[in-house]
Each structure stands twice: as C-alpha cells, then as structure tokens.
C-alpha cells in the first residue's frame, strides 16, 4: 500500500481531477495543484483549502502544460511546497475535433502535444526523480480510446495509446525502484469534456465514481486500471475483433 500524503496534480481543474483531489484531501493529503486557467484553479484550490485540516497544505500554480520548458520549475516549486512528493496525478487533456484534425496536421499536432507530448515531458522528469527516491506513485489518466484506433477519434486514441505504452515501459523500468506506475483508463465520464454528447445509457460514469477508482488504484499501486471495471471486458472484446472485420465497423 502506498501512502498518499504529498501529491502533485496536473490538470487539477478537470472534473475528474477535482473530484480525486477532494477525496485525497479527505484522506489527509497535502496537494499542489497545476491548472491552466488561473481563476478556475483559484476556485478549486480555495475549495480544497476549506476542506483540508490545519495540518494539511494545499496550493497551486497556473501553467499551460503545452509549454514544456516550465515543467522542471513546476516540479521544483511543488516539491518545495510539499517538502517532498509521494505521488503525482496527471489528468489534463483535450478531446479533439476529429474532423478538424483530419483537415489539418497543425491541429493534429496540437492535440498530440497536449495529450501525449506534454505528458511524456512530465513523465521523463518525474521518472528520474522517483527513481532516485526509490518510492512513489505516478498515475496518469489515459483512456480506453488508447486501446484501439477508431475512425471517430483516432487522433485522441493515438495520443492516449502513446501515453499508455510509454507508461507500460516506465512501469517495467521503475518496478525495481519500488515506484508504482498507474495507467487509468476511464470509459465514458460525464464531464465538460464530453458536454456535447448524449449521456443516457448505462455506460456513463460520474467523475466522483472514477475518482474513487483512481484513489484506490494509486493506493494499491495497480498497473492498468479500467474505470468503471466493466470497461476491462468491453475493451477485451474490442481489442480482439479481427482487423478485417473491425475496419468495416463504424465505431
């Protein structure tokens, strides 16, 4: 079991991350939150401060994570504030307009930079720090979409798939250093990211439900975690549909 006392959250203004942060604070953790929009971040941080005890510390810093040149100094600031880091949760992301990406490589590159490159920059720095420390948890919110490319969102899927595979390798590398690498793969979650979609049907989960799964996975140091659990079975089937059939399906 990992102890989650001092945690950095990237993308803290995301609905999933905010719910996770609340649950972590309720368990006595201190947090350093990074979010892009400073007024949203203030709202999130103030809320967490009210929920925290006087022993816990919560603060944050606004940063656009596309700007990878600031990643090192962000980590330094977080480590200073928390006095060491037990765990990191990376949750920022965007859901691309697939059609716009098909029409423009620039758009595609930007989405890949947000969802994959910026995450991998953070992971590169974190891996070395945690490897030296010989403990800790690195958790990243990837997606079931990264398990197989589909016509409706393969740019997003490719970026998330890259993150998932990168994490797989990292887990392998850091296993001997006692560092847990956790890949979170949510299915459909009712958040602003999916605002345009029809959310009826049993497959939709609430962010607080997913957050609960994230906290549990971070504590246990699980590897690949599908949230809610039934996505494991759905993706097992989807991964095993033969390509000659899959390519004709409209998914």
């Amino acid at each position: 079991m990992n102890s989650l006392k001092r945690i950095i959250i990237f993308g803290a203004t995301s609905a999933i991350a905010e719910q996770t942060a609340r649950q972590l604070v309720a368990r006595g953790a201190s947090l350093f939150c990074v979010g892009r929009d400073s007024s949203k971040l203030d709202a999130v941080v103030h809320d967490l401060q009210v929920r925290a005890s006087s022993e816990q510390r919560v603060d944050g810093k606004a940063a656009d994570l596309l700007d990878v040149s600031h990643h090192e100094s962000l980590l330094d600031a977080a480590e200073d504030f928390l006095g060491g880091v037990d765990a990191v949760l990376i949750a920022h992301g965007t859901l691309p307009d697939q059609k716009a990406c098909e029409a423009s490589f620039e758009q595609t590159r930007k989405e890949i930079d947000t969802n994959a490159t910026s995450v991998i920059s953070l992971l590169t720095l974190l891996a070395n720090r945690f490897e030296r420390q010989r403990s800790g948890v690195i958790a990243v919110v990837s997606s079931v979409a990264g398990d197989r490319g589909r016509q409706s969102n393969y740019v997003y899927g490719a970026a998330k798939g890259m993150v998932s595979i990168f994490l797989q390798g990292l887990r392998n590398r850091l296993a001997r250093s006692n560092v847990s690498v956790v890949t979170i793969k949510p299915g459909f979650v009712d958040t602003p990211m999916t605002a345009g979609m029809d959310k009826s049907g049993p497959l939709w989960a609430k962010p607080e439900q997913v957050a609960e799964g994230i906290v549990k996975a971070m504590t246990k140091g699980s590897g690949d975690v599908y949230l809610p659990w039934f996505w494991y079975w759905i993706m097992l089937i989807i991964r095993h549909i033969p390509e000659f059939i899959f390519k004709r399906m409209s998914l």
Binding site: A43, H46, D47
Partner: peptide
C-alpha cells in the same frame, strides 16, 4: 441553467 456544478467552498 443547472447550478450543481458550482459546488465549491470559497472560505470558512
């Protein structure tokens, strides 16, 4: 306008 998303404490 659904307001439940405005669910943050601000100060106590």
């Amino acid at each position: 306008l659904l307001t439940r998303g405005l669910d943050r404490f601000m100060a106590f």
